[in-house]
Nucleic acid binder design. Structure first.
Length: 290
DNA sequence: GGGGGTTCCTGTACGC
DNA sequence: TGCGTACAGGAACCCC
């Protein structure tokens, strides 16, 4: 499941290959992958062909390529999206939704393919707007900075978290509060912080909020260093290779296995239509709210 | 206006 | 063997 580290691994693989490249031809194989593209602004293909890619950027789980036209090509990987670099004429991968033929000075002609089994991801051409002194696509402007961004305001995060009236995990997954965290790294950061996923945010102390933030950063950085988390073929880098972080997980997907701190079996509960994994001893369930 | 439930989507695993 | 069903979850959307 692509979260911040997986998207950043893809960005780092893509940037050296396509920066300065010209988009020669675009093929939309499955228009469902354009659900975030606003066709009123223009035709997706027409807005890309002949444009040059100036840079590859990221905020949270959104990635975008800035274009010589002043717009950006926004990519969201969703659950199962991949961006792959292929040689022209290579055998097609399964579930190719969009194909970009690009010409580069350093690497010659390349094919950038957007592959997405479950079609939760998307590509879109969007206008850039100014925010925090930088340009971001308009459809990314509503999400918060991610915790690896040097402009991230820790004090503001702690205050906003404690103002909320919800559970801590739901808050961590709220991209307008802090971006880039998904189900896996939320479970891992809460395990490391010894906090139950349903701890009311108004009862999280400032010190606990800072601990959670520090553990979020630690788990994101460690996953990034290990190339991201891969369980199956659904997450790979631009060359189709898997990451290694799944071997480092302490809670996510480990239900029934011993907690690596106390030995008690990890529990999985259904929460927000997904799994929540925690140690019932290290992460005590909060008292019922009054 | 914020919280929380629902929906989109397909391959895989599993039970009968 | 084959069919039906549950499950995985990011984010937009809708309702209260």
């Amino acid at each position: 499941m692509p979260e911040l580290p997986e998207v950043e691994v893809v960005r780092r693989g893509l940037a050296p290959a396509v920066t300065g490249a010209q988009i020669a031809h675009v093929e939309v194989v499955d228009a469902r992958s354009l659900k975030r593209h606003d066709a009123r602004r223009g035709d997706f293909v027409g807005m890309l062909e002949q444009a040059q890619i100036n840079s590859v950027e990221r905020r949270g789980k959104f990635m975008w390529m800035t274009l010589s036209t002043g717009d950006a090509l926004v990519v969201h990987l969703g659950m199962s999206g991949q961006v792959l670099l292929r040689e022209p004429g290579a055998d097609d991968d399964r579930h190719v939704r969009i194909r970009l033929d690009v010409s580069t000075a350093a690497h010659g002609d390349l094919v950038v393919t957007f592959v997405d089994q479950r079609i939760f991801g998307s590509m879109a051409v969007d206008a850039l707007v100014e925010q925090h002194g930088a340009l971001v696509p308009s459809q990314v402007a509503h999400i918060a900075l991610d915790p690896l961004d040097e402009r991230f305001d820790d004090d503001a995060f702690v205050a906003a978290l404690r103002r909320k009236r919800t559970g801590i995990k739901r808050a961590l997954l709220d991209q307008t509060l802090v971006s880039g965290i998904g189900n896996i790294y939320a479970d891992e950061a809460l395990w490391a912080s010894r906090l139950h996923y349903d701890r009311p945010t108004e009862r999280v102390t400032p010190a606990q909020a800072r601990t959670v933030l520090a553990e979020v950063r630690a788990v994101l950085r460690k996953a990034l260093a290990e190339g991201g988390t891969s369980f199956d073929a659904q997450y790979v880098n631009v060359n189709g290779q898997a990451g290694y972080f799944s071997h480092s997980l302490n809670a996510y997907g480990r239900q029934g296995e011993a907690c690596s701190r106390c030995g008690v079996p990890i529990v999985r509960e259904s929460f927000m239509n997904r799994g929540s994994h925690f140690c019932p001893v290290c992460q005590r369930r909060p008292r019922a709210r009054l």
